[in-house]
Simulated scan of single mutants.
Amino acid sequence: MDGQPSSADDRVTRSLYARMHQRGESLPEAADELGLAAAEIDRARDQLTRLDLLNPETQTAADVTVTLKRTLQNTHRLLDGLVEQHVRTAALAKHYLRLPEQADNHAHIEFFPWLNRSDQLSERINELAELAEIEVLGMHPIAAWTRESLEEGLARSETTMRNGVRMRALHAQIALSNPLIREFMGRWRRLDIEVRVAPVIPTRMLIYDRRTAVVQADPHDPEAGSILIRGGSLVKSLAAIYDYCWTTASEPDDVPRSADGVTLTEQQRAVLRMLAAGQKDSAIARSMGVSTRTVTRLVGELTAMLGASSRFQAGVRAARLGLLDVS
């Protein structure tokens, strides 16, 4: 039965891990010395796997410090909710623009519906790019890019860079699997535009001189329109969030790339998420409502597709490639 481990199971797991860590024994060796029953061993193994405290290849204890460091490196994912909260707050503000009372009297907010976004918003973005004096920060999730739209953006960036403005761009890691994006990423970098990639890009956003921001009204719905926020503390908060995302992101050359055109079905993505969490085929099958044989087949296919040497590595590699975070 799935759920939180009992206090007894927790004590067994801690004792088992302590012995493995102190004596350098593998899980089977330590369990044998402690005289644990098969069911206790299975529950302890599942718990250590969930906590990322078990090396799947050697069945030995993973170092707690290394595990904590890896966990902290992933905390930027928690920022997704904070970014969405800020953006939704801005979206709500559009309904109260006519009220004389404003929470921030120095902020000016404009809403751009999706229907006229391509005209009015593009004009405003061009104006902001020309007026930028210090820096332009961009956050770009996966989109239906075309060569025409990318050329247009590149021309705008060239103008901005000629004015001595620093430009930084955050992209989703999975974008590296798109040859068109890889081509333009090289062109951006030759212009001295700084580019980094991350597994998760929470929303689309542009920030100009930390005074003006253009954000997607709803991170989950591009057709919900966009919001321009000028001045006020909200833009400073968004810039601070951007800085954190930038710090935890990677240089493109440091990120492994999947083969061009690699895509996953929702079923494959669900299996990989559970593999990365260390779940067994039987647990994955129950969660998905399919047979264990089906899960075993999917795991074999995914392991081969990702060039992984183990099921756990397949899940981890997919997460590093950003494949698990594409909606």
Rank of each mutant, 00 (worst) to 15 (best):
L306A: 00
R297A: 09
G153D: 15
R166Y: 11
V290R: 00
V165W: 02
A144S: 12
K280S: 15
R297P: 01
R11V: 11
F312N: 08
R204M: 12
L150T: 07
L234Q: 14
Q173E: 12
A37M: 13
I142W: 13
D253I: 07
P28N: 13
Q313R: 15
G24M: 05
G35P: 04
W246Y: 13
Q22N: 12
T203Y: 09
D254V: 03
L128I: 08
D52W: 02
G278M: 01
T247G: 04
V299E: 03
E57N: 07
D253Q: 06
R23E: 15
E152R: 06
V195Q: 00
H220E: 15
R311W: 09
S282R: 14
Q59P: 09
A175D: 14
L154V: 14
S15H: 14
M161E: 15
L321F: 11
V197K: 10
A143W: 08
V83I: 07
L97F: 06
G300D: 14
H76E: 10
N55T: 09
D243H: 02
R190K: 12
N74S: 06
L16R: 05
P100L: 12
P202L: 08
A239D: 03
M161F: 12
R70L: 11
I174E: 09
R230W: 06
Y96I: 00
A172P: 04
R210F: 02
F312D: 13
H220G: 06
T296H: 02
L302T: 11
V214D: 02
D254T: 11
S226Q: 03
V255W: 07
D260G: 10
R204F: 09
Y244K: 07
V200P: 04
V316S: 00
S26F: 06
P179W: 11
A318F: 13
A239I: 03
R147Q: 10
S237K: 09
A8P: 00
R210E: 15
R147T: 07
A175C: 04
D32F: 03
S291C: 00
A90W: 03
A217P: 13
D281N: 08
I109F: 15
D243I: 01
L68M: 12
P28V: 05
R11Y: 10
T247Q: 13
E40W: 04
R70D: 10
P56R: 03
A283N: 01
L48N: 06
R190W: 02
H76L: 03
Q313A: 13
L115D: 06
A31F: 04
R211D: 15
Q59T: 08
E135M: 08
T248M: 14
A318L: 08
A285V: 01
D281Q: 06
E152P: 00
D9M: 04
R117Q: 15
N178P: 08
R88Q: 15
N178M: 08
F112M: 10
N126Y: 10
Q313V: 09
L121R: 11
L298F: 04
A169M: 14
D260T: 13
V64F: 14
D52H: 11
H76Y: 12
W188S: 03
S226P: 07
A304H: 10
E84S: 10
